[in-house]
Design a protein around this nucleic acid. Structure first.
Lengths: 383, 383
DNA sequence: GGTCTTTAATAAAGCCGGTTGCAAAACAGC
DNA sequence: GCTGTTTTGCAACCGGCTTTATTAAAGACC
């Protein structure tokens, strides 16, 4: 009640976001007049907002450009290199790390195949930074993807892939070591988010993400946000008994007979191996009922499927979609599309979630949207 | 760009809502000073806001009360009787209608058992109004619940219960006739919403609603909003083939052997009929897998189950929860609770959705929350 | 080199929304 | 009729934005 109104600051905050977004659209430094025209704000307002942004350190003024007639205008530039954001995917067989600048542009990438451990996370980030001469003291946030059920506090409640990390305060350890906030989430959920924001599900709010490899994993993005669930079990279909391929001891583990792993079965089927094709169709028929139920529960706009590489995936998509279609009474069902980001979806989701959760720490202003399109764009071009 | 700022009006709008909410809390007329203290707004602001509300016709000033010492203050009162909102549940065997005032208080209720038709909707509303001397010209909005797949435009795309109403412009017809906007939605979805907002799921954002009667119906409320789905099929588990009890021609229709309807089976099982009990347990085991999948997809906070009356429901809850528990690997699963609103959940959901969708028409201001707790409260006390 | 043109930056005034503070009004009670 | 209490209404001010006007800085032209 001391004269401070929420509404006014909200308005200013929104304008800060608008100006920063406009600047981030383009690499060029922009003059106040252009920003004013582009955002619809008045010139004095743009000036005031830019002052804020310069104070926050996310924008800098360049020297007046001495071109054309008239008084030369100072231009303002989004300092993309002003901070770093990292993403790490710690899986059972190794670690992937990626480092982006404030614009979401990828600056470093590392992949290490070692036994997963907390120290490996740090090792990967430091290796990536060293290889590209990046100063990790400028790291503003880190996102971490783990295979398993991740609690709200960032700890693993259960994990088949990383049993030795269960209940450890990983986020706190990393945060202390690197001096930046750390966000942790489940790997498949983050992959789904990345695909929805900038991958095969781009443009849709509701996406079901299927990953078929060593196990069948499902994750769901609804209204543009990861569905977590009360017990963080949303999408954990592997937690249900009675799936034929879970007869061995490993919970939710897929058991393949014609080849050791799902990816290899896919590859063999794509190559024409009839035993693999039979197993694949059998497999599709088995999971189709489950998937059909999922589709009828959430009725998403698109189903993104990931499994192996593009080549092998084609061998999976058609039989899977056909098997699901057979389960449904209505002709309406969402299209099945191949993942666009592949296995990198997880790391990219990790970076993105760091932006999502610590946006105000990263940019110094509130409400700036995460640069998902650039985070995921890099991937699509290099692929 | 002509000098009108969005931020300022947003602020004013929020304050209008705050003041109106404060007035609606209590039946008494309140003085400006009390409102100011209660909302935290300053006195001049409250005054300005009240002027807006009086203009909108939703608040009226009473004569200065000549009590106590000092200058008598005018008091302001929420005119709950200033408008009416109706809800209608048109089912295969009849219609239910309810009329509320602006505060969500129930003023009229009617139930007619006739062949469902568009004219029956009007008939029910008019009967309810006439019986209670209500002037339908003051009707501000109407919500309509229909059994079937309801399109975005309010028409039925498919319906087993009301096949003759498919594709008819029902909403337009009613709107023309009654002169108010009409919102249409699926009956089970509206029931789920009512239970989540003010019934057995009150206080939870994520609710799965199961209705077991002539057919098995599921509806889901996530983050406090009904899950609709891309094709409006969210929750339509009946659209999946291969459920044992769908062997007869009727799609999704439950087929009971020991008794003709599910409710009667429940009643018989509750009364100790062993044949019915066996069929019930068999039934639970059959649907448990499906339900377990639903729970693992959305991982809700609570499952609200409706079927028959309270007595019979107890016979269902335990075996159902046990059967689902057997399907799950993790011990965590949401509690199963009996519906609090029973079959009236549908009508109440219809009224509530009218408030939700046409709130600004109803109150003349934007952003005023629907009076769900009062809409649903009436029910719990009369039951 | 001085004036002119062109454009940017700044300053001033006004609107809208909100708050605080103070004087005036209206009534009860002595 | 005066005093006291409480509400009211008005003025002043802040913060944010816009519009308009003024000043500043560079190049262009004679």
């Amino acid at each position: 009640m001391d004269g401070v109104r929420a509404g006014a600051q909200t308005e200013r905050s929104a304008n800060q976001v608008a100006c920063l977004q406009f600047l981030a659209e383009d690499d060029e430094a922009q003059t106040v007049g252009v920003i004013s025209a582009g955002t619809g704000l008045s010139r004095p307002t743009v000036h005031a907002v830019l002052d804020d942004l310069v104070d926050a350190g996310v924008v800098e003024a360049t020297e007046p450009s001495t071109a054309g007639p008239g008084r030369p205008a100072r231009a303002f530039r989004f300092v993309r290199e002003g901070g770093l954001v990292a993403g790490v995917d710690l899986g059972p067989r190794g670690v992937r790390a990626v480092i982006c600048d404030l614009s979401g542009r990828r600056l470093a990438y590392t992949e290490l195949q070692k036994d997963p451990d907390v120290s490996l996370i740090l090792h990967a980030v430091r290796t990536a930074a060293d290889e590209n001469d990046l100063d990790l003291t400028r790291l503003r946030a880190l996102g971490l993807a783990l295979a398993g059920v991740v609690e709200t506090d960032g700890r693993l409640r259960a994990s088949l892939a990383l049993p030795h990390l269960v209940s450890l305060p990983i986020a706190e350890t990393i945060a202390d070591e690197l001096g930046c906030p750390v966000a942790v989430d489940n790997d498949i959920k983050l992959a789904a988010l990345a695909e929805q924001r900038g991958g095969a599900g781009r443009g849709y709010d509701d996406v079901v993400y299927l990953q078929i490899g060593h196990r069948l994993s499902v994750s769901i993005v609804l209204n543009g946000v990861i569905r977590q669930g009360r017990h963080r079990l949303a999408g954990e279909l592997g937690a249900q008994r009675g799936m034929r391929w879970t007869r061995n001891a490993q919970r939710g583990q897929l058991v393949w007979t014609s080849r050791p792993t799902g990816e290899e079965v896919l590859r063999a089927a794509a190559a024409g191996d009839s035993a693999a094709q039979v197993e694949l169709e059998d497999f599709c028929a088995q999971i189709a009922a489950r998937i059909a139920t999922v589709l009828l529960v959430v009725d998403p706009e698109v189903v993104v499927v990931r499994g192996g590489r593009a080549l092998e995936l084609d061998a999976l998509l058609q039989p899977l979609e056909a098997a699901v279609e057979k389960e449904l009474v209505f002709p309406e069902h969402p299209p099945f599309v191949a993942s666009a980001l592949g296995r990198e979806a997880v790391v990219l989701g990790a970076v993105g979630t760091a932006f999502d959760r610590f946006g105000s720490d990263i940019y110094g202003i509130q409400g700036y949207p995460s640069p998902w399109s650039r985070i995921t764009h890099v991937e699509r071009t290099t692929k």
